[in-house]
Nucleic acid binder design. Sequence first.
DNA 1: CAACTATATGACGATAACGACATAAAGTCA
DNA 2: TGACTTTATGTCGTTATCGTCATATAGTTG
Lengths: 176, 176
Amino acid sequence: MPRPRVLPYIILGLLNKNGMMSGKDMISEFKTDISEFWTVSHSQLYPELQRMVDEKQIKVAEDVEVKDRKVINYVIEAKGQETLKRWLAEPITLKNDELTSLKLYCISDQRAPILQQILKQCLALHQQKVVHLKARKELLFGDELAIKANYGHYLILSRAIERESDYVNWLQSKIN
Amino acid sequence: MPRPRVLPYIILGLLNKNGMMSGKDMISEFKTDISEFWTVSHSQLYPELQRMVDEKQIKVAEDVEVKDRKVINYVIEAKGQETLKRWLAEPITLKNDELTSLKLYCISDQRAPILQQILKQCLALHQQKVVHLKARKELLFGDELAIKANYGHYLILSRAIERESDYVNWLQSKIN
DNA sequence: CAACTATATGACGATAACGACATAAAGTCA
DNA sequence: TGACTTTATGTCGTTATCGTCATATAGTTG
């Protein structure tokens, strides 16, 4: 199996946050808000919307008022809200941590319990990472000679430690 | 077309750095050194090695001495070194910046000119990013009400600014 | 040596990614 | 209204991904 799709969850997240949206609305919000972390092409989006309607995760919003019969608006269904909730509640692991920013983006309420849960799990994960990376640096680059012989490796390992440490600090500052 | 492969370049980078390696050697180095940034399964690696032999990027190292006829060792060819060099020299953009750490990993010599070139391009890119992100935060989250209404979005945008600023500082400290 | 296990390599099927092309409704301007 | 452009949605072919199964050699233990 190829890598799992995240698109359906992001669609649910947007619809849950914003109410009614069309495909074009989603595309533009993807681009302006989260393109740093994740992108899709429209040729993935439209088939996905159809699939999700079939699965009753979302439905077409039938506005009698709307004159524009070209644009198709969608709203989230109860089943979709449950799917989203389960996705947000999935334990954060090394494998899925790249999705954490996207999950946070889907949570608008500052006091949602799931938000602090995510931040705490994320903190634990990255604290472990710092420990692991520091041990590795110690092991590999104890002497100056090793640094000179593998400078690129040394650079990215050093950077990883700083990056992760900075992230840990930030997470701690946002956890109650 | 699907997303382009990076595997061939990483293979060239490893062989260029380490000399003779087998598929299994590569797998284990992938895992220990760069699995933070990028992963492959062995079912991608072995066909790729064959393809690259066909393309004369690498060749099978015919050791008469070697007793172990199960393991296949490879070495880089002149064409492969050129391919690698061209890859490392590609301008860094928003699209390919996720590969920058992998590129650095392939450069062992601290005084290689390409290393500083990469760091400088990377710096320029992320400085722009900081400017852009700060402008967006200003625009979207000028008032406290907007923060409360979209807290997850506020969080990831704030984090992005800190992350990028930290990265910019680090890059500056490594540039001559 | 025989039998079993571990390991390095190889092959395949299902599906996700994504550029390119297609279509039809809406907008624009004469 | 007619011709042209723009845009929102839809479709397709190629190729990358990745779990799973397969194979053959090396190692190990009796």
